[in-house]
Nucleic acid binder design. Structure first.
Length: 878
RNA sequence: GGGGUGUUAGCUCAGCUGGUUCAGAGCACCUGCCUUACAAGCAGGGGGUCACUGGUUCGAAUCCAGUACGCCCCACCA
């Protein structure tokens, strides 16, 4: 035979992917005769490259979409990328810097030209990589969140929400990223545990009377902000400071006088019980400031350096300023002590910079109203989260939702459609022309020109476009009644990482109800995080993240797909180990060799079929497994579904079925067995296909000649069918007997190729008849026959169920060893019987337990008794 | 600080409505095999007081309470 003993994925994968594409199997159009099934991809950043998280995520989506396609649904998986404003802008800035160009020297238009150039050249690599994985996306539908129609939808939504009063502009305390030079939403901020320092500073009490200066000690982690202090607050109940009520203190170094204020908010037992109030640079202080009508002094520039208002350290970075002021305070003897303590630093998710709480004019989206139906939908299971533990998290977040800061001080993104009039007021409109008309109306100045209007410089948060994704990919804004959106929306399943549950999933649900009055998807499957074998998160800096393309190169896409899934129960993190992928690769090889065996058979049409039992057994076994597999799918237990298929293929089909039917070496095989085996294998290939699309398609075509469009990718998914439980049980019993024979062989060091005889003293001979050939073959037995009496000597005996078996041994057997083995088994069985007896003699059990349980217990007793007498007889015969 | 969730074999995890498919799977491990589909393999095997303590029950890995440890999410103590 010329087929290689090892499966070679490389050429096979490219061949079939091209073939599928060419025949348009991935493409979907609304078809009223078919049930729609749609998934929108979580659009990866356009700057992104494929990492292990994408691999897992997209493998799962592909499995779902392929299965749906085979189920005869109109399966549509929409791919695309996200413009990722901060990440992309940062890349473009870096690229420009390399070319010696500074963003500052460019106009907005020039910068965007570079950015688009960059996007066209480097963007979307990740989509090409997904093809290598086998992703069967409808590539004709590829979208990008910043393409014209998508951006138009974003602007339209902004205007709509503004007019509904759900978007407003205002000065608020926001999370400022000094490195990115932009505001961020609360979700884009990551807390980071760090050791921080608490500085205890002396504020001199202003008191004309005494000549000796008096001080109050204030604890702060940010001494560089003292120049922005407007008060020192103490708890009114704090007796230590009663004498300071109504007094003023002087800011160290600066000397500016600020009042001592009283507020319950201050904890008596934290720090020194005295809090410096810096409204411009801390949210709590801001609120205190509002309450006590204090001024705000903002001493920071956009980039985190100190401005003129600070008076000291002007122009220095906030951290440099901190070092310097600490030194100066020390020298002035105003620093009492420094304490180390565990604290949480807020950092930017994108740039890693320490976030500066900062008062700033931004755009916000009101969330309360939109959150209500979105929360309801999840609580009442209209939308289901898998695993369901995320429901609680979702609820907690939605119930405490805060307004969303949607403006970003960047250029790459959808520009906010607000236009300012010379008088400082503004109008919001989708186009400048429309804005002009509005502006003329509102200002009463009919002479206003376009050039008088100035559009807001900011762009919108990327998520403000992503949250529309399930609607906008089907053009649901531009053309709300088009046939795509009517057919595919709501989509069916969303597969994504729990990290973006709030960023994205929750907001999509809100957008779905707000703009289409309908959920965006029915199920949300949240995958785990891919970690390394030690449980560490994969990261570039640790270098523990394998390159997915290398893995595919090495193990084949099918192997990698299977490997990823071997250990990824829903919602649990996946501890990735190359061994898993190896196991996946080995699995492809196993399948390949099963195929080689079948392919190599020579058919003799004159032969009768000796394998009816094996055939109907596997048929039943397949149907039994299929029910389990479908059940796993229905619960999004993809990993368990794969494992069930794995065992069906490896254990049932290969180790058992094929071994039962395969003819002796170089012997021909009958036609019926071959036909049936091919048919059975076809079913196996079908359930395997979503997991391992390439090798299954390859074998599908190699197995027999197929018609034009007869591809596995569109073959009919099996239907649930009744199965014969009886034959499955009997086979299991027979396989136990086979196991016992093999065990005997192994423990007595009898070579595999030496045939043995087997005598069977069984209760029901009938039930063995049709399995005799199988017993012969798998046990490698010579004579097999029923006996009525125990064989007395020179035999090894064993019991399966309550049937006894004897294998005559040539030469002497080790009587002592046999006796020991049987005695052990006897003891165990007696113990077992005793426990059953105890149960049955317990009146409360007999009266309390259901009938089925009691009769099961009785059967146990009978079996055990039969076993005991069998073993005892064997012992007596030794 | 609030909420969630977990603890079962060396590792990763199943175990749905308490009772023979209740102590399981995969990997790892051990033994023996180059038996013509497959050594990326075949056959067999060992291994767990189901975290701890109490309770409910005829019966608990499974239900309840508490304890310990872990993880996740949220949160403005300087």
């Amino acid at each position: 035979m010329s087929i290689s003993t090892k499966y070679n994925p490389k050429e096979v994968e490219q061949k079939w992917y091209d073939s599928w594409m060419q025949r348009g199997f991935f493409h979907s159009e609304p078809n009223p005769n078919k049930e729609p099934y749609s998934i929108v991809i979580p659009p990866p950043n356009v700057t992104g490259v494929l990492h292990m998280g994408h691999m897992l995520n997209n493998t799962i989506q592909d499995i779902l979409i392929r299965r749906a396609r085979m189920q005869g649904k109109e399966a549509c998986w929409v791919p695309g990328t996200d413009h990722a404003s901060i990440a992309t802008e940062a890349k473009v800035v870096a690229m420009l810097k390399e070319r010696g160009i500074s963003k500052k020297d460019l106009t907005r238009e020039e910068f965007l030209t570079y950015a688009w150039e960059w996007k066209e050249k480097y963007g979307g690599i990740i989509l090409e990589q997904l093809k290598k994985l086998g992703a069967s996306c409808d590539w004709d539908r590829t979208r990008f969140t910043m393409e014209e129609d998508m951006s138009a939808a974003v602007i339209e939504v902004f205007v709509d929400l503004y007019r509904k009063g759900l978007i407003y502009r205002g000065v608020r305390m926001v999370n400022w990223d000094p490195l990115g030079g932009t505001a961020l939403s609360d979700e884009e901020v990551l807390p980071k545990e760090t050791m921080a320092r608490m500085y205890h500073l002396q504020y001199e009490v202003v008191d004309g009377a005494s000549s000796e200066p008096a001080y109050i000690t204030v604890a702060t982690s940010r001494p560089e902000t003292i120049m922005a202090d407007v008060a020192v607050a103490v708890n009114p109940k704090d007796s230590r400071y009663t004498h300071l009520h109504g007094k003023k203190v002087r800011i160290p170094l600066l000397g500016r006088e600020i009042p001592v204020i009283l507020d319950e908010y201050v904890s008596v037992d934290f720090g020194t019980g005295a809090l410096k109030v810096t409204p411009a640079h801390d949210l709590n202080d801001y609120e205190l400031g509002q309450k006590h009508r204090l001024p705000t002094i903002d001493i920071l520039n956009n980039d985190g350096t100190l401005n003129e208002q600070a008076k000291l350290y002007v122009g220095q970075d906030r951290f440099a300023a901190r070092r310097n002021i600490v030194k100066d305070l020390q020298e002035a003897d105003l620093l009492v002590k420094i304490e180390e303590y565990q604290s949480v630093l807020q950092t930017s998710e994108r740039t890693g910079a320490v976030i500066e709480p900062r008062l700033s004019m931004q755009w916000f989206c009101k969330m309360d109203d939109m959150a209500a139906p979105a929360l309801e939908a999840v609580l009442n299971d209209d939308i289901r989260l898998y695993p369901p533990k995320f429901k609680n998290m979702y609820r907690a977040w939605m119930e405490n939702i805060r307004d969303w800061c949607i403006s970003r001080q960047l250029w790459w993104g959808q520009r906010i459609p607000a236009f300012y009039l010379p008088n400082g007021s503004f109008v919001v409109a989708t186009t400048a022309e429309e804005a002009l008309e509005l502006a003329r109306g509102e200002s009463g100045d009919s002479q206003l020109q376009l050039s008088d209007l100035r559009q807001d410089e900011d762009v919108l948060d990327t998520w403000f476009s992503s949250w529309l994704w399930p609607i906008s990919v089907f053009n649901g804004f531009k053309d709300p009644d088009n046939k795509d959106i009517l057919y595919y929306y709501p989509t069916n399943d969303l597969v994504t990482a729990p990290e973006i549950l709030f960023f994205w999933v929750a907001r999509m649900i809100m957008a779905g109800y707000e703009f289409r009055k309908e959920m965006p998807f029915k199920n949300v499957y949240l995958t785990g995080i891919v970690r390394d074998a030690q449980g560490r998160k994969m990261s570039k800096s640790l270098g523990n993240s394998p390159d997915p393309l290398d893995l595919i190169e090495q193990f084949g896409a099918d192997g990698v797909r299977a490997g990823m899934l071997f250990s990824s129960p829903a919602g649990n993190d996946l501890l990735f180990d190359e061994k898993l992928v190896e196991q996946g690769r080995n699995f492809t090889n196993k399948i390949w060799n099963a195929f080689r065996l079948i392919k190599g058979w020579e058919v003799d049409e004159s032969l009768p079929c000796p394998n009816e039992t094996a055939i109907s057994w596997f048929e039943s076994r397949f149907n039994e497994a299929f029910v389990q597999i479908e059940d796993h799918f229905s619960k999004f237990r993809i990993s368990d579904a794969l494992l069930a298929v794995y065992k069906l293929v490896w254990d049932d089909f290969c180790s058992n079925y094929l071994e039962m039917i395969k003819p002796a070496y170089q012997q021909p095989i009958d036609k019926r067995t071959v036909d049936e085996t091919v048919r059975l294998l076809e079913n196996v290939l079908k359930v395997l296909h979503p997991f391992m699309p390439f090798i299954t398609e390859e074998i599908w075509h190699e197995l027999k000649t197929r018609k034009q469009k007869e591809f596995l990718i569109v073959a009919a998914w099996p239907k649930k069918d009744k199965f014969d439980k009886d034959i499955i049980q009997k086979m299991e019993h027979v396989l136990h007997v086979v196991g016992a024979v093999r065990n005997t062989r192994n423990s007595k060091n009898i070579p595999n190729n030496k045939q043995l005889d087997l005598y069977m003293k069984v209760a029901n001979q009938e039930s063995y008849i049709s399995f005799m050939p199988i017993l012969h073959k798998l046990g490698n037995l010579n004579e097999v026959r029923f006996v009525e009496e125990n064989l007395e000597s020179g035999v090894i005996s064993f019991v399966v169920g309550s049937d006894e078996f004897f294998i005559p041994m040539e030469g002497n057997i080790d009587v002592a060893a046999e006796r020991e083995r049987l005695t052990k088994e006897l003891e165990y069985t007696k113990g077992f019987l005793a426990s059953v007896d105890k149960k049955l003699s317990n009146e409360r059990f007999v009266s309390g337990a259901p009938e089925a349980v009691i009769s099961a217990e009785r059967k146990k007793k009978a079996d055990a008794e039969a076993r005991i007498s069998a073993i005892e007889q064997s012992l007596a015969g030794l």
